[in-house]
Design a protein around this nucleic acid. Structure first.
Lengths: 208, 208
DNA sequence: GTCTATATATTGATAGAC
DNA sequence: GTCTATCAATATATAGAC
């Protein structure tokens, strides 16, 4: 029985995302993926060369989609200040991470193990992500819209705040009894981020 | 050739920490651990029952030490306000995570995979950690030292900010070109955390 | 406490029929 | 594109000598 190639490939990706997310990359076998996807094991090698190739495909797809969305903030939406743009971008980031929460978690986890692939992802996509936000902040500082602030420090903390609930959703669930995927929580998260930003932009602070 | 049991056990733990940290739990074999520790493979089962038991031992040891240190903030050091105590506790947390950076990273990573052990660690130690900080903040709010604020939200963000550099040290290194284990960086981190706290305590903010 | 030797299972990947 | 069958490597865990 032949199947549409597009469908088979997609089913493998979906199964892999689910299993990599819940069990980790090394904790997942190609057989489990094939079984969950309802396809033959050999098809993983056919479409993705090997298990690592499948992981790489998922990671690249995720970041390409993220940057398409962030580019949309720059060009599509109307923003009347850099502060406004920054808020748009941060909200987009939070919502993207929430929407693709499984890939978000699995990427961050695999990023934390020492590997070639992790290093490549960091040097390309994470460096780009940092630059997207740092550039806007730097521009705001230069134009006098923002007070002088340590750009890198702000970006690190923005990354920390926005990623935490989606890399450790179980902590949010089992320690704080909140549901990180609820729209209510997402709005709360966006609010937190806005507040943090607002504080950073308040000149009277001692933040250096 | 007989060896001191204390030494052998410790050598296994040290090797395991290093390998679990860099390669992940599932990515590490008991043979690698035994080899790195310079002991026989069978001794892992002798001392820790199995690989999972070794991981559990490392995690429990880490959190027990952390809480001993945090308890020290409450009782040993002199603090003249709850704000002061909170700062002491946060600095202790940051420095502890920096000192045992390998275990910090491996625990956070393994916490992000769906497992019985992870759930147990969360429901005991992370819940306790949350309570340690939440209790001080709540006390401060009740006594009027702090303005009214959403305690849980503050704790989530404190956890996010303080843990990020030690769960993703490679991001700090390869994207921001900073060394997360330098005393200079640690001081910067403590400073960030203090600043965040200071902002939260400033009543004029819109943080709810 | 420490070792060797081994049982048992499972892994990722592929060759080749269809 | 999809399948079966299988290879070769590696995994954890343990039994039993020392």
């Amino acid at each position: 029985m032949k199947r549409s190639p597009k469908l088979t490939k997609q089913k493998i990706v979906e199964a892999a995302v689910e299993l990599f997310d819940s069990q980790g990359f090394d904790g997942t076998t190609v057989r489990q993926i094939a079984c969950k996807a309802g396809v033959n094991v050999a098809l993983i090698a056919y479409y993705f060369k090997n298990k690592k190739g499948l992981l790489e495909y998922v990671m690249v797809e995720y970041y390409e989609a993220l940057f398409r969305k962030l580019d949309g903030c720059r060009h599509d939406t109307e923003w009347e200040s850099l502060y406004d743009l920054l808020r748009h971008m941060l909200e987009s980031l939070v919502r993207f991470q929430s929407e693709f929460y499984q890939v978000t978690r699995l990427i961050h986890r695999e990023l934390s193990v020492e590997s070639m692939l992790g290093r490549e992802i960091m040097s390309t996509y994470l460096a780009k992500l940092k630059h997207y936000f740092a550039a806007v902040i730097e521009e705001g500082v230069e134009e006098g819209e923002f007070p002088p602030l340590q750009v890198e420090g702000v970006v690190i903390q923005l990354m920390a705040i926005t990623s935490f609930p989606y890399t450790y959703p179980q902590i949010i669930r089992e320690v704080f009894y909140l549901e990180p995927l609820d729209e209510q929580f997402v709005e709360q998260m966006v609010h937190y981020t806005y507040d943090f930003l607002h504080h950073m932009m308040t000149p009277l602070n001692t933040f250096r």
